[in-house]
Design a binder for these strands. Structure first.
Lengths: 143, 143
DNA sequence: GAGAAAATTTGTAATAATTACAATTTTTCA
DNA sequence: TGAAAAATTGTAATTATTACAAATTTTCTC
């Protein structure tokens, strides 16, 4: 679906930064930070400011167009894919990998009287690439 | 089990701040922030500094004595209960409530070749208390 | 138990993500 | 087209966390 239409459907006004940011987020699978988004788009939208990226991401999140992840201690990461899935965070390289999850609910249910609107499943550990690197390094300099 | 013994078992030296912090965390069910811990213990350990709390919490987390939660955007919360369970975060009052979860793994498994060492399940929404407050407020000032 | 060596803590200063805010610019709509 | 409303921008403020060197505490040996 067209990005502009998506914004209209949410009652969000159409502006250059918003269109650029949503378009960018929808085609990413890397869960960029606010700074990543800023760096990626500043050449396309030269007047862009980091504050705008913060504002727009917050607005999008409030309307359910994106999810913000707290999986990385350093900074918030933004996910343009709002279908239910979990995330794996590699503590060595910082990469975030999607984890398919059929049994995970999308929220909107009741848990002991508390209303759940968001579900976050975070795995943390060492990704396969960093695991192979570790093994290579060990065989090179054994100890 | 005695807190000192726990520290010894992990190969961690016994010091006043460490004993006080671990004792405090083991009897809390509120998932305190670093600042909460500092505020709670500074009268008991007058020389305590926030930096020490950061250092000690990090050390404990590395040894699996506590878990650090990234559920609250503002700051890290510390959980002295390391048995597998999830968490509910109330977006209105900020309270964190334990969610019992039998089917959730404790980590140490493989996910698409990635080694998972930590599992975090976060629910976010509005807790039952804040829900009742909302209803009361609405009936008082309808609109 | 005293004293030296090692480990730990402490306070301050630095870092970095995020937010507040007022001025400017863009968009909307009559 | 032009005024009103909405959004963006840049700067400055805020705040959690980290770096680091000096001071203190703990440990270990005699």
């Amino acid at each position: 679906m067209d990005v502009r239409q998506k914004l209209k459907d949410c009652g969000i006004g159409i502006t250059k930064p918003r269109v650029a940011i949503l378009e960018y987020l929808m085609k990413q699978c890397t869960h960029p930070t606010v700074d990543d988004i800023y760096q990626a788009l500043v050449s396309e939208v030269p007047t862009l400011s980091r504050t705008t990226v913060y504002n727009v991401v917050k607005l999008f999140a409030e309307h359910g167009l994106v999810n913000t992840l707290g999986i990385d201690d350093r900074n918030v990461c933004v996910d343009g894919d709002t279908t239910p899935h979990g995330h794996f965070f590699c503590k060595e390289c910082g990469r975030i990998i999607d984890v398919p999850l059929t049994e995970l609910s999308a929220g909107g249910f009741d848990c002991d009287g508390n209303m759940v609107t968001e579900v976050h499943l975070y795995y943390k550990g060492v990704c396969s690439e960093c695991m192979s690197k570790r093994e290579t390094d060990e065989s090179r300099s054994p100890r």
